[in-house]
Amino acid sequence: MKLVIENVSKKYNDKWAVREFNAEMTDGVYGLLGPNGSGKTTLMRMLASILKPTSGRILLDDQDIRTLDETYRDVLGYLPQEFGLYQNFTAERFLAYFASLKGLDKNIAKEKIAEVLALVNLTEHKRKKTKTFSGGMKRRLGIAQALLNDPKILIVDEPTAGLDPKERIHFRNLISNISRERIVILSTHIVSDIEYIAKEIFIMDQGVLKERSDLAGLLSGMKGKVWEASMTETEFASLQGQYKIGNIQRNEDGVKLRLISDEKPHAQAVEVLATLEDVYLYYFGEEALQHVQA
């Protein structure tokens, strides 16, 4: 199965939300990384066929998804960034409703509902009304509905928002486990969500694809750009504003910094191995990183 995004753009009034995005995807996890407002959600909506591109097209095995229509949505699982639940529905009824919307046979639906409820650890809450659910439980139920039809293409937009660290790890492992025979497109501004599971990472900013590569490629591109240096508070103050600064560790001797720079920023600076967080900092700056670390 091959999903091709061909010159896809989306314009709202005079503003381009996504501009000439090109990508080709086969089985595996694809991470879409970018700060809020970078166009990730718009791109995800177009991929989920709930928003029409202004220009360009999306092809599944060489066929336009608009032509495929129901056939495309039959293999699709989608979890938007913001979504609600029917307040009067129990978790089980909510999934039964989506099973029917996805065209699942009644008997198969029953089994699948039990299976996805177990996957997201909601089995014991299946008869509770969704209005009693916490934010994390709602998101887990959302993930469950996206998985109901065993989708060949899974699109999840900021899936871990609102999940606690334990649930986040559980979700990451879940995605990793199910990604073998399907395309998983995961958008996030939380680096750790995709760092170790993404086959390829797309870095988006202001609607434009800035960079695309696997993790190793992105990290090798950062060679000679990530530094660590210990210095006094006075030196630190003079460096602030000149470089993109990641971690700041204070100790008795002064400050230990991790910073991004194309050249050696300080006499005592030592080049270190980059992480995906450094890549994010390199492209989007410290302000965006605050969201990442949040």
Binding site: F83, F98, L101
Partner: peptide, 12 residues
Amino acid sequence: QKTIGLVLATKH
């Protein structure tokens, strides 16, 4: 209830 995105992305 913001379920429209979920609903429209399903087959039916």
